[in-house]
Design a protein around this nucleic acid. Structure first.
Lengths: 278, 278
DNA sequence: CATTTCTTTTCACTCAATGAAAAGAATCTT
DNA sequence: AAGATTCTTTTCATTGAGTGAAAAGAAATG
């Protein structure tokens, strides 16, 4: 058991392979072999081998300079993920429509753990600039869309969230538990949430939950500059979109995800590794 | 070396792990342990272990019935992929705008190997129904968007493509090499491509390349019902969008993907496995 | 209740993964 | 242009991590 400085953990082969993939992030989407090894905390030779295999499966791709980057395969698999394949896919037309109607930034988010994850975000020319990136995780109490998710969650879940520290992002972030609870009740009553500069200054939002079979599956939000327009004018459109999406999702349950009875062994289990040109 | 019926290949541990992930597809996005083992062509005990590790890294998630599905982590990583993080992200506003202007299905595709991959597709209520799924791979010669990509590719690449069989999808699919070559020349001249029911009956399309530093990075397309509208009326808008996107991409080269000089060893290489609630 | 099918655990064996080291490229330095 | 650095690729002896048959435990099925 060597423990040189940083010499990483990652016991099993699989864990190491995943560590290699995890070395990439938004700031560094392209890495050379040695950078990769360094970030993953693994010996170069090891990473060389692992990366090679990952490349074969196109979980890694290399640019013409030989640098590694996450591969197309990962993107393709991401498409098969429930959040994308089921949610985003069905939600898209409604989001587009909503965006078409109000010409503001429209967002879709779900709950994962104690955070909201942004699944999709439609911005056009006229809308607020750099908002939360797709894939971003933001505490539930801090945004309109987060509060919409929270307001319609189970009581124990809400309790669990309230038990955690409510990080302050701006002076307006709700950090008082009682205030938050009161707001949640109000949101449940109104059917939508409102927020003003609670996560980032200068922007406000309106959000509504997407209820499928009695539980919150997601939330849709509209974001705009604080004080540009009165967002509440869009409440009907927003609620309409959320409702329609919910309906569509309800209809689709069991269709997209059937309880398959017998899956035949896959002859192509040993698929030929694709090789790309150009 | 056992070779029972179907007993799969997958030599290395990593390859096996990837095989497990590869077992999922659009038709079967959720699998039980044994289904998974069967599809991957691996012994149950082995898959049990591998799946366990993949689940720890959230490369797999389990639904409340215990079935496995591709995990959020994969989706998140897909976002870091060049096709998404660089291309789709920057293209989105332009696509939205274009869709807003013409109210038809708008697509974004890139070239991968001998196929076009659809990166994004914006459909609204009024647009053509089930078009090619995002992530779908379609031969370059068979669609408008594919031809746009092909027309501006290098000569050797075009040659390589022409050397392959030109699969016929509809009676209208161009399968004559000379016809195709002639069209490509015309596309180069006009700056955009046109297609009528060449891939699927009833729909036609218009597409333009996105040229960055002299090479085709992607193509944008508009799809509509055959004969509904004269798509060529949108040519200016389409070309405008393609041009603007190209410009934006050119500006961003090296910004999003800097040649990082020194990446510090990642202390969080041994990250704690996230665990989700709710 | 018996039967089939699925999940989880165990364990002795061995083969595949390992990583230090050296060779080979490429890049930077002066 | 030679020397110094840093990076990629290959080799190989060592060993411990992964393996999968088998059995036990749960669930679903009829």
């Amino acid at each position: 058991m060597n423990d040189g400085p940083y010499k990483s953990s990652a016991k099993s082969v699989t864990a190491r392979a995943l560590a290699v993939l995890a070395a990439f992030d938004v700031e560094t989407p392209l890495l050379t072999l040695s950078q990769l090894a360094r970030k993953a905390g693994l010996p170069v030779a090891t990473v060389y081998r692992l990366a090679g295999e990952l490349e074969d499966g196109r979980f890694l791709d290399r640019d013409n300079a030989g640098r590694y980057g996450l591969g197309v395969r990962l993107w393709e698999m991401g498409l098969l993920t429930p959040v994308h394949g089921r949610l985003r896919e069905t939600a898209m037309p409604f989001l587009l429509n909503l965006q078409y109607e109000c010409r503001e930034t429209v967002q879709l988010a779900v709950c994962d753990g104690t955070n909201a994850i942004y699944i999709e975000k439609l911005t056009s020319e006229t809308s607020v600039p750099i908002q939360s990136r797709i894939g971003a995780r933001i505490p539930l109490h801090a945004t309109g869309i987060g509060k919409a998710l929270l307001a319609f969650s189970s009581d124990d879940f809400t309790e669990a969230i309230l038990a955690m520290p409510l990080t302050q992002f701006t002076p307006e972030t709700i950090s008082d538990r009682r205030v938050l609870l009161r707001q949640l009740a109000q949101i449940r009553q109104r059917g939508y949430s409102v927020s003003h500069q609670e996560y980032s200054l200068g922007s406000s939002s309106l959000a509504a939950p997407v209820m499928v079979n009695g539980s919150v599956q997601a939330a849709i939000g509209i974001v705009s500059y604080e004080l540009r327009t009165d967002l509440t004018q869009y409440a009907p459109a927003l609620l309409g979109a959320a409702k329609s999406l919910a309906q569509r999702l309800e209809d689709a349950v069991g269709v997209a995800y059937p309880s398959i009875k017998d899956v035949p062994p896959d002859p192509a289990a040993a698929a030929e590794p694709l090789r790309g040109a150009s």
